[in-house]
Simulated scan of single mutants.
Amino acid sequence: MGIFDTIREVLGMRAEADSMRAADPDDLFGMSTAYLTMEADLGFEPSAEAALCFAGVDNTDFADTVREVDDILHAGKEETGTDVSFQKDGHGYEWVVLEDDDPEDLVTSIHFAADTFIERDYGSRLLAAVFGFEKDGQSAYWIYSFRRGAYYPFAPKGSKEHDSSVEFKLESVLDGELELEPQKEYWYPLWPSSPGRHPWE
């Protein structure tokens, strides 16, 4: 099975069919308190970046939806100062990438973007929301899977390796504060293009 098939299966089609519960974009607001726990209890500081991953559709209505998301986020920049950009990764997936020193602004902006896709009937195209953290050169992420309606941790280490001890530590500390994915086979690693980069790069 190739990487494209794997990501579609884990974050996509199979997961959509057997997901434990429907995704709720309001789950994203759990990160508003989780980032405080990450910093106070685990020493991981927010990286000032977050991103929303989605699978595009080649039609005019979807293009209009993406423009609407762009317009909403750029309009909000005057109040929040959140920078926004759109990128496409090497697997063909698209990302709304946000940068802001205030983690709560990132959470709010990610929620606005996700909610807009859902209101325009493209919720099924949402794959994941990704929130970045750093500690002593170690990157860690909380990934919210829209197909599973749950969060899971991801701590990349080197090339195509992940630090399971860090991931399990994050799981144990944030269990109860975030809606966590209990089935480890759905903890899909979103590998960056090269070590030291973010999954959306």
Score class of each variant (00 low, 15 high):
151 Y>S: 04
176 G>E: 03
170 L>M: 15
96 V>S: 01
128 A>F: 04
124 S>T: 13
97 V>D: 09
138 Q>D: 13
99 E>S: 12
189 P>T: 08
129 A>F: 00
158 G>P: 14
128 A>P: 00
190 L>A: 02
68 E>K: 15
143 I>Y: 07
83 D>I: 05
98 L>C: 14
147 R>P: 02
168 F>M: 10
183 Q>S: 14
70 D>F: 13
192 P>K: 02
175 D>S: 11
138 Q>M: 07
172 S>D: 14
134 E>K: 03
150 A>C: 03
90 G>Y: 10
124 S>R: 12
144 Y>E: 11
97 V>L: 06
150 A>N: 03
126 L>A: 06
170 L>S: 05
164 S>D: 12
146 F>G: 00
131 F>W: 05
193 S>M: 07
153 P>C: 09
63 A>S: 15
56 G>V: 06
178 L>H: 05
55 A>Y: 14
192 P>L: 05
150 A>F: 11
62 F>M: 13
107 V>D: 09
94 E>M: 14
166 V>G: 01
126 L>S: 06
55 A>G: 15
141 Y>C: 00
108 T>M: 01
63 A>M: 13
170 L>Y: 12
138 Q>P: 12
134 E>D: 07
151 Y>I: 07
125 R>L: 07
65 T>R: 04
111 H>L: 15
198 H>V: 06
139 S>G: 03
62 F>P: 04
101 D>C: 04
112 F>T: 06
79 E>W: 07
183 Q>T: 02
138 Q>V: 05
160 K>C: 11
153 P>V: 06
150 A>D: 04
177 E>W: 08
138 Q>Y: 02
190 L>P: 02
87 Q>H: 15
124 S>N: 12
156 P>G: 10
136 D>V: 08
122 Y>K: 00
134 E>H: 10
67 R>E: 14
115 D>T: 05
62 F>Q: 07
96 V>N: 01
107 V>Q: 04
98 L>V: 03
63 A>I: 10
135 K>L: 14
152 Y>D: 00
123 G>H: 03
130 V>N: 02
58 D>G: 08
133 F>T: 05
113 A>W: 04
83 D>E: 10
151 Y>G: 03
121 D>F: 10
114 A>P: 01
175 D>R: 05
98 L>T: 08
114 A>G: 06
148 R>W: 06
181 E>N: 02
181 E>K: 08
123 G>F: 02
163 D>R: 07
178 L>E: 08
134 E>Y: 08
144 Y>W: 12
144 Y>C: 03
147 R>D: 01
145 S>L: 00
100 D>T: 11
87 Q>Y: 13
119 E>N: 10
133 F>C: 05
82 T>V: 05
117 F>K: 00
60 T>M: 14
185 E>I: 08
79 E>K: 12
82 T>C: 08
65 T>E: 03
124 S>Y: 12
196 G>E: 07
118 I>S: 00
99 E>K: 11
106 L>F: 04
141 Y>M: 01
150 A>K: 06
184 K>H: 08
95 W>K: 13
100 D>A: 11
101 D>A: 15
190 L>Q: 00
121 D>N: 10
159 S>H: 13
